[in-house]
């Protein structure tokens, strides 16, 4: 398949799984934004506006992670209920193209949510060249490793109901328990150590540091980037070698 055809395939998957379903059912857009906005609202009320910035940063990380991990439900549904993955396997479309297209299509759903968060981000004066660059980099990494993780899992699930069992667990382990919506210093010492096993801790630390919510030394920032990139690379390698594109 030529590069041009690969791009065409990716664009087609974005249209199939992103644009057409939204055209058919616009409430998909609302469902994506509901959870992060709920958290933001809750934090705004409880902190009387003081911790709004944490809610804002956390909301963006949660949105991107949800978009990534939410892919597992779609992929599992398409694989088992529609046999769409089998149709794709028996075609020139390679697995990385399928993942890229489907992951990008999920990103389409998140655009209104991101637009709201970006508008608030700018409105509250957090937008600087460096904060935007850091935020963009972090969010792309979170989305990409979330998507790779979701793809790998989807190839092991036998039914979409299994994804329903796992989704809340991922949300809890990756966005509620780790300090995505609050500073890590709020956690007791043992929990801070546990939080270090979650990649979103590093993502949150970087975005919170980028807007001045938390002091972030250059060394800590460097470590955070390295860990985040390593997580993403590890999950991509797992997807490349352990995901079941062809059934065993």
């Amino acid at each position: 398949m030529s590069e041009r055809n690969r791009l065409r395939s990716i664009g087609t998957l974005v249209r199939i799984n992103g644009i057409v379903p939204i055209r058919t059912q616009p409430f998909y857009l609302v469902s994506i934004i509901a959870q992060p906005l709920s958290f933001l609202f809750f934090i705004w009320i409880v902190s009387r506006g003081a911790d709004l910035a944490y809610g804002l940063m956390g909301g963006m990380v949660l949105t991107m992670l949800s978009v990534g991990t939410g892919l597992q439900s779609d992929l599992t549904h398409y694989r088992h209920d529609m046999k769409f993955q089998d149709v794709v396997i028996a075609s020139p479309v390679e697995a990385p193209i399928y993942i890229a297209g489907m992951a990008l299509s999920e990103l389409v759903y998140s655009l209104p949510a991101l637009a709201v968060f970006v508008a608030l981000f700018v409105y509250y004066g957090y937008a600087t060249v460096s904060s935007v660059a850091i935020l963009t980099g972090v969010l792309l990494l979170v989305w990409s490793f979330g998507s790779a993780f979701a793809f790998t899992l989807s190839t092991y699930f036998q039914d979409i109901r299994e994804t329903w069992a796992f989704s809340p667990i991922f949300s809890l382990v990756l966005t509620v328990l780790p300090p995505v919506y609050y500073p890590i210093s709020y956690l007791p010492a043992w929990a801070q150590i546990a939080a270090r096993f979650s990649p979103t801790t590093y993502a949150a630390e970087l975005v919170q540091g980028a807007v001045g919510l938390q002091p972030l030394t250059p060394t800590t920032a460097e470590i955070d980037w390295i860990v985040l990139v390593a997580f993403a690379a590890a999950l991509f390698l797992i997807a490349a070698f352990k995901a079941r594109w062809r059934d065993p």
Binding site: M1, N5, R6, R8, S9, G11, T12, L13, I16, P92
Partner: peptide, 9 residues
């Protein structure tokens, strides 16, 4: 869309 997915123009 299936044909586009396969790379046809």
């Amino acid at each position: 869309l299936y044909l586009k997915l396969r790379g046809l123009d």
